[in-house]
Design a protein around this nucleic acid. Structure first.
Length: 156
DNA sequence: GCCAACGTTGGC
DNA sequence: GCCAACGTTGGC
């Protein structure tokens, strides 16, 4: 019996790779995660089909821009082996890769961004990992938090 | 194994 | 562009 589907939030800098870039590409490998906790979520907990809140960081305002979906099992991030890549890791080998990722697939862009400020002020969202912890770019979200934000984003 | 220095994230 | 938060590195 498979584990219950989970919900996630993944951050991307808006001017580096926005939800519109993901819409254009359809699906993309989530390269460049170099934080162990974020990696562990992708490697150990994510399953194909899990839904993702797609968050724009370094934006004004920052916030949740839409929804994406996990589109693969975890596999080794190829950029760790590429000496020309900014994400090259000299300690990683093909036999023992250090960094794992999943593919992420576009689902929808919200008509209107759900700003971080609104999330902070929402009484049912103030315990979100997003609010309590900076600097974690792949993080779990409860089903309740996911539904509240989806409802906010889908209001016209 | 401690912890200071360092580097990065990311809001403002 | 500033800088607080905080994860990582490396000297000891």
């Amino acid at each position: 019996m498979s584990a219950e589907a989970r919900h996630w939030l993944m951050k991307s800098e808006e001017d580096v790779y926005s939800i519109e870039d993901l819409r254009r590409d359809g699906v993309t490998p989530w390269t460049g995660i170099r934080n162990y906790e974020a990696r562990n979520h992708m490697r150990d907990r994510m399953q194909p089909g899990d839904l993702i809140l797609y968050y724009h960081s370094n934006a004004s305002p920052p916030g949740v821009a839409g929804i994406a979906r996990v589109a693969s099992e975890a596999y080794a991030d190829p950029e760790q082996f590429d000496e020309a890549s900014a994400y090259h890791d000299p300690k990683a080998t093909h036999e023992k890769p250090r960094w794992m990722l999943v593919d992420v697939e576009f689902v929808k862009a919200f008509p209107k961004l759900v700003p971080l400020g609104d999330i902070r002020e929402h009484p049912e969202l103030r315990d979100m990992v997003l609010v309590k912890r900076m600097r974690l770019s792949v993080q779990p979200v409860t089903p309740e938090e996911f539904e509240i934000i989806r409802a906010l984003g889908e209001e016209s």
